[in-house]
Write a protein that binds this DNA or RNA. Structure first.
Lengths: 142, 142
DNA sequence: GTAAGACCTCCAGCGACTAGAGCTGCAAGC
DNA sequence: GCTTGCAGCTCTAGTCGCTGGAGGTCTTAC
């Protein structure tokens, strides 16, 4: 299986596959005489794992850790469980933040009745200096 | 007011203020004879606007557009309203995605009862090749 | 005079790709 | 054998919104 086929099967791009290899998440593959990568089923499984984890929002760093635990055949899955729980709690926090944000945005657009930008309610809402200035850290990805 | 004071008042870092100036979101300030930036109330208002919009997750590109509309004293706020509505719909989509993700994560961690990594349910769930491979675009920020 | 702290510019790095330049490999049709 | 065209290759730079650091200058206090 060449890289294009693997990419098609796993639903990611050719560049991404090469990127994962360069990052050491996928082991280097064999090559044809013409230097093209050849993949086997094991690569597809591993890439499928990475892909699914990425879809769930795990950062590559966590995925790297999980893969190394699996590779080492670690005695317990406690660490994997920990990573998943941490990630879940981040997701919950993001949802909470986005919900607050959604409400503010909904309020803003609801109050806009058209008119001049100088008297736009959205601008006013955004200009409102009364909200607290918590040390702002936009720690997306969200 | 020097840059440190402005940063403190608006709740962002000194570097960020300079970054916004470099990006043209804040107009260049006057300088002291020793080349230090001097800010006035108008800068604080504008930076407050930018800050609040960022907290609501607007990308700098949108903020740039909104500021230019305000600067031009545009006849209508239709475009601003449009930007806000678009952003709201993105936020709603992100919330929906995060909710789905949350459920899958919750299922995963609930099924893990400890044991060897080789038979870890989380690993299994992540390895599951049965989920569809939609062309994956992780268009965070979320 | 000197020390501390805030300021200055410029550059590199983050994460997870993505896009593009400029090349080579490979299979099919002529 | 030759061409065409797609798929592959490497390498580099760009995305976004900052953040951190190096190495220097200004300002104020003692």
């Amino acid at each position: 299986m060449l890289i294009g086929e693997l990419a098609r099967r796993t639903g990611c791009t050719v560049q991404t596959v090469r990127y994962y290899e360069a990052e050491g998440l996928l082991p280097p593959s064999m090559r044809t005489e013409g230097n093209q990568r050849i993949y086997v089923a094991e690569h597809e499984r591993r890439l499928g794992f990475i892909r699914h984890a990425r879809e769930l929002g795990f950062p590559l760093k966590s995925i790297r850790t999980m893969l190394s635990l699996v590779d080492r055949n670690d005695r317990s899955c406690a660490e994997i469980d920990h990573i998943a729980r941490e990630h879940l709690s981040e997701v919950l926090q993001r949802i909470a933040r986005l919900d607050a944000l959604k409400q503010e945005l909904e309020r803003m657009v609801a109050e806009c009745h058209g008119g001049q930008a100088t008297e736009c309610r959205i601008i006013e809402a955004l200009s409102d200096q009364s909200h607290e200035h918590a040390p702002f850290r936009d720690d997306r990805p969200g």
